[in-house]
Design a protein around this nucleic acid. Sequence first.
DNA 1: CCTTTTTTGTTGTAAAAACAACAGGCTTGT
DNA 2: ACAAGCCTGTTGTTTTTACAACAAAAAAGG
Lengths: 219, 219
Amino acid sequence: MKKYLSILKKTKLFSGLSETDISSMLSCLDAKLFSYKNGDYVFRQGEHLSNICVLVEGKLLIQNDDYWGNRTIINNISIGEMFGEAYVAPESGALLNDVVAVEDSVVIFFDFKKILTVCSSACRFHSMVVQNLFFAISEKNKKLVQKLGHISKRSTREKLMSYLSEESKKQNSLSFTIPFNRQQLADFLSVDRSAMSNELCKMRDEGLLVFEKNQFRLL
Amino acid sequence: MKKYLSILKKTKLFSGLSETDISSMLSCLDAKLFSYKNGDYVFRQGEHLSNICVLVEGKLLIQNDDYWGNRTIINNISIGEMFGEAYVAPESGALLNDVVAVEDSVVIFFDFKKILTVCSSACRFHSMVVQNLFFAISEKNKKLVQKLGHISKRSTREKLMSYLSEESKKQNSLSFTIPFNRQQLADFLSVDRSAMSNELCKMRDEGLLVFEKNQFRLL
DNA sequence: CCTTTTTTGTTGTAAAAACAACAGGCTTGT
DNA sequence: ACAAGCCTGTTGTTTTTACAACAAAAAAGG
């Protein structure tokens, strides 16, 4: 476990804590380490989770197979990322996706009850972890709501307007840089790249905005 | 504040606690009550939040105006619902939406720091609230991810397959009831009702499934 | 029981998006 | 400097969706 302290230190969960702090908390949080070979399932659809997990080595895929056999990649988890936190609530039911290792991987499990219930020995940094966890999940929440706001628009143009407006608000300026290239933006908005590129140029020609590469300005 | 104890008791935040328990915690959580007239803004775009809010009377709308003036209803908040919890993280930045009262409304604000930091006087039920808060937000998170999974599919048919598969998994049976009528389902999946209805019937004719009203069976 | 309203399915048309294929420009690495 | 590989824009075609309008069935209300 010691081996991965430097990685844990960089995670959102332990943000602001030193390696020594983290080390002293591991037992208090009932941390357990599991290894997986490339191709192994970390979790299977139908399982019930009661752990918050952090990937410290390798790479995972969260994927979903529907009844007719269509497979979708929901997300890929890189080193330092947390997962499973959305499934620990008792009413949350069984996991609906599979989590698969696509490289030899190592995951650390934390008992979420232990995290939430500040221990009687009152380890100093425990409440910090609670806050970190809360911030992380609430941040995720915010991002999801925003993305949903864009994607649920009917037309490509509306999706673009929604996204670009928001980016402009976030950066508090009509000129702003987006963190995507065209293909990534199209994927994010769930549209075809070329169609989106086309629409973007139409919007430019209509005088709604100007752009150059990933630098945009609303007019 | 007393007046609203019966409502607070039914919220997710205070689930499992009695009115007396809640009453004894209110000061510890630094609860504050605010009233709004129909049309008043509870929050405006650009503000920074540090409270978790619960609506105890009236009705609110979370709405978003983009740069070009298009207004979107993001959500409507009914009595007993919690909001604002996605914006309390320090890095979360300014609120990007407006929250408006569409009836005369009353909102109770809780200091999120007070919630997360279990008080030294160690009120017995505090850690229960922390857990409730965490469950509520993680549940929201889960729902958002799932919805996003459906909506981000390109075609109406794929959206339907994704949604129906999941509902089947959730209810652990190929026969299941959905909690929507056609219009609601179309809104949820962000497609046109008649087009969706059409697609649904095509799928039935192709032998993928059968349905009657909101009862479905996958084949 | 009858009327009214709501929900659902159906059809045709117009609009939009996906898709495919390609060209020019910009990067990167040798 | 050159070649190879990406990224972006552009165009034409095909497929899909939205939209509008309507009919039938079901539900609600008196």
